[in-house]
Computed example of a mutant assay.
Amino acid sequence: MPGIFTISLDLELYWGVRDSRSFENYEANLSGEREAIRGMLDLFDAHGVHATWATIGFLFFNDIVELRQHLPGVLPDYRRRQLSSYLYIDERSWGHDDAYHFAPDMIELIRSRPGQEIGTHTFSHYYCLEDGQTIESFRADLQAAVEAAKAKGIPTSSLVFPRNQGNPSYLAVLEELGISCYRGNETASFYKPRNQQEQSSWVRALRLLDSYVNLSGYNTYNLEECAHSRPFNVPASRFLRPYSRSLAPLDGLRLHRIKRAMRDAAIGNRLFHLWWHPHNFGADVSENLAFLEKILAYYDELHKRYGMQSCNMGEIAHALERMHVA
Rank of each mutant, 00 (worst) to 15 (best):
223 L>D: 04
108 E>P: 01
96 H>E: 11
230 R>T: 15
215 L>E: 02
218 Y>L: 12
69 Q>K: 14
89 I>W: 03
325 V>M: 06
93 S>P: 00
82 Q>K: 13
61 F>A: 00
56 I>K: 00
161 F>P: 00
284 D>H: 10
171 L>Q: 13
143 Q>E: 11
122 T>F: 01
79 R>F: 08
72 P>L: 10
163 R>G: 01
207 R>F: 14
147 E>Q: 12
270 R>P: 01
71 L>C: 08
95 G>T: 03
36 A>Y: 01
282 G>E: 01
161 F>E: 02
80 R>G: 09
296 L>V: 09
89 I>A: 04
118 I>Q: 01
316 I>L: 03
68 R>H: 12
283 A>Y: 01
274 L>N: 08
49 V>G: 10
159 L>W: 01
318 H>L: 08
303 H>C: 13
296 L>Y: 09
127 Y>N: 02
183 R>M: 05
70 H>P: 03
19 D>K: 07
27 E>Y: 05
186 E>D: 05
319 A>V: 12
146 V>K: 10
50 H>K: 05
317 A>Q: 00
176 E>S: 14
73 G>E: 13
124 S>K: 00
123 F>C: 05
118 I>L: 10
154 I>R: 05
97 D>P: 00
280 N>E: 05
200 S>G: 09
164 N>H: 12
104 P>G: 07
119 G>R: 02
13 L>P: 00
267 I>R: 05
202 W>N: 09
250 L>G: 12
169 S>N: 14
222 N>I: 07
220 T>F: 11
108 E>V: 04
174 L>Y: 05
280 N>L: 04
61 F>Q: 02
7 I>K: 02
199 Q>E: 15
102 F>P: 00
234 V>N: 06
113 R>D: 12
165 Q>C: 04
231 P>Y: 10
243 Y>A: 08
101 H>I: 03
235 P>M: 15
256 H>Y: 14
20 S>R: 15
216 S>N: 14
295 I>V: 14
223 L>I: 04
40 M>F: 09
193 P>T: 13
189 S>K: 08
95 G>W: 05
259 K>R: 09
219 N>W: 08
283 A>T: 02
180 S>A: 12
40 M>A: 06
189 S>R: 11
199 Q>Y: 07
156 T>S: 05
315 E>N: 03
133 Q>Y: 06
194 R>E: 02
260 R>L: 07
27 E>D: 12
241 R>Q: 06
11 L>Q: 07
140 A>M: 06
275 W>M: 09
297 A>I: 08
314 G>F: 02
186 E>R: 14
261 A>L: 08
50 H>L: 08
256 H>A: 11
175 E>L: 13
75 L>F: 10
138 F>G: 00
112 S>W: 12
307 G>H: 09
72 P>G: 10
5 F>R: 02
255 L>W: 06
93 S>M: 08
88 Y>G: 00
249 P>Y: 07
181 C>V: 08
244 S>E: 12
15 W>P: 01
201 S>Q: 12
178 G>S: 09
197 Q>I: 09
196 Q>L: 15
315 E>A: 10
201 S>P: 04
102 F>Y: 15
87 L>H: 06
30 L>D: 00
34 R>I: 15
79 R>Q: 11
70 H>F: 04
303 H>R: 14
